[in-house]
Amino acid sequence: MSEAGKVWALHLGLLGLLFALQFVLPAYHHGNLARVMVLASFAVGYNLMFGYTGLLSLGHAMFFAAGMYGMGLAMRHLGWTPGPALIAGVLSGVVLALVVGALALRTVGVGFMIVTLMFAQAVYLVALYFGEWTRGDEGFVIQQAERVMMGLDLSQPGPRYFVAFVLFSACMLLSLRVMQSGFGKVLIAIRENEERARMLGYNVFRHKLGAVALSGGIAAAAGAFYGLLFGYVGATFATTQYSILPLLWVLLGGAGTILGPFVGTLFAFYLIDISSGFTTAHMLVVGVVLVALALFARQGIVGELRARLWRWLP
């Protein structure tokens, strides 16, 4: 089998496994995996910007929150149905990403990190300031009767898992297709040597802006679906914590790999879940494990597999 065939077989095989698991998992893990798939979609968006383009953002929570609030406010205050509201959420993230990208990309390195962090904090403060509509930290609940799309009651475990699966499948396959395209290869070239990419005639700023917009759009889609599937919208999702988490997931799974965001999200989620069942100091256990991985698996779980076993992994 060719390398391209192996790549598609592996990724489609994972999706086939995730699809089958919904019929056999117990209720607790069924719900957990649905949540993991939505959060992994968030990490997929972050990976496009950080892992493949080399842009380290400390403010990705603003895109996740933009999608969540774009969807939630449209349903709560405009009476929109879930379909149009989800589109509004994604468009909110894309527009915000274009604005932030156009300004933040005028800086490099640490400057880019600081600017994205500042923008994210501004979005969080806006959510708090307009608490009359957003309800700030308290947030608001999307009622069960409103969470029906195309005849599916998304408050029920089965439809919720299926929609989370569709979202993750779309995000992962889009990521794979983008990185196999000429656009994706230019992003990798920019990450490896930006000056050389510019000397070869590529418009570096335009490609970076495209990466930020695509990354922000995927993150916004994850935020919109998270709010709809789990019935809650709140400013908590705009805090710095939700900017650090996707970075952590991507580093754990393997930056610059297609499967890394999912593996990292799944690993981190269950590491916290399992360790908290044994001790109240579960974050200490998590910290020790993460430090060990940083020391002995510097390229992340999937990154190490690619370096040592399967060099054809994208």
Rank of each mutant, 00 (worst) to 15 (best):
S2R: 06
A9M: 02
L10A: 12
G13C: 09
G13N: 09
Q22R: 14
F23L: 14
H30S: 07
V38P: 10
S41Q: 06
F42D: 00
V44T: 09
L48F: 07
M49S: 14
L55N: 09
S57E: 05
G59N: 01
A66M: 09
A66C: 08
Y69W: 07
G72S: 11
A74K: 03
M75L: 05
A88E: 03
L91A: 13
A97M: 15
A97D: 13
V99H: 04
A102T: 12
A102R: 14
A104N: 12
L105I: 12
R106L: 11
G109I: 15
V110Y: 04
V110C: 00
I114K: 02
L117I: 11
F119Y: 04
A120Q: 12
A120C: 13
V123F: 13
L128M: 12
F130S: 04
E132K: 08
V141L: 08
M150I: 11
D153R: 14
L154E: 06
M172K: 06
S175C: 08
L187V: 01
A189M: 08
Y202E: 11
N203R: 15
F205I: 10
R206C: 06
A213V: 09
L214P: 07
F225K: 06
G234F: 00
A235N: 06
F237A: 04
T239R: 13
T239C: 04
Y242R: 05
I244W: 10
L245T: 03
W249S: 06
W249N: 10
V250S: 02
G256T: 10
G256I: 10
T257N: 03
L259H: 01
P261A: 02
F262V: 01
L266T: 01
I272F: 04
S276D: 03
L284Q: 08
F296A: 07
I301K: 04
V302L: 05
L305I: 12
R308W: 07
W310I: 11
L313I: 15
P314S: 01
